[in-house]
Structures are given as C-alpha cells and as structure tokens.
Amino acid sequence: MGNMPFVVSMILVGLGFLALITRRNLIKLTIGISVIEMGVNLFLVSLGYVKGGIAPIYTYAPPGFKEMVFPTPQALTLTAIVIGLATTALMLAFAVVIYRHRGTLDAGKIRELKG
C-alpha cells in the first residue's frame, strides 16, 4: 500500500475518463477534463516526494534538515495547472457560445457535424 498516492491519482484520471464517456452535458465534460488534469497533476507532484523531506526553500529552513522534496515536479505541476486553467477557460467559453446557438448543452443533440 506504499504507492497509494500514485494509485489514487490514476483512479482520478480514470474517473475523469468515465465522466467523458458517460456524461452528455458539455459543462460536465469540461469538469471531466478538469478531473483528469487534477489527477495528472496529483500524480506529477507526488512523484517528487521524498520521505521526511521539507519544502525545497532555504528561507528560514530548519537548520540540520535531512532531505528536501524534489523541486522539479512542483515546477512542472505549476506549469501544468496553468495550462489546465487555460484549457478550461477556453472550453467554457465555447460551451457558452454553443449554448447561445443551440439552446442546449446536451452533447447528444449537438451533433450537426456528423457523417
């Protein structure tokens, strides 16, 4: 059970995919994408954990600390979070415009582009 954080974040990714293939509301699809993003971010940030490590910041760090948590995954996660935010914002904007045109958010009804 030592790897629970990895497993949990992967389950979160799976839940996001489940939402994407079972839900029909565009807002819920956006939430599904966000859930996957959060799962991946959780996965990334938990990769860098070192047992007993402190935050990788030297300002007023406790003298005589043993380990520091890996800083790279935190930097990557920061980037990934902002990217996820940008994606979500744009998708919501599209959802708003689609609702304006069609009067519905049901993905089952928004399928003019088929065939």
């Binding site: 565009l26 994408i33 998708m91 599209f94 959802a95 689609i98 045109h101 069609r102 582009l113």
Partner: peptide
C-alpha cells in the same frame, strides 16, 4: 453554429 461545435470537440480530443 458549426465552428464552435467543431472547436469544442477538437479541444476535448487535443486536451486528452
């Protein structure tokens, strides 16, 4: 009405 729909679908796929 069609371009936003295409953009949303493409967005979902690209993001995934």
């Amino acid at each position: 009405p069609r371009p936003p729909e295409a953009a949303f679908k493409t967005m979902v796929m690209y993001t995934l």
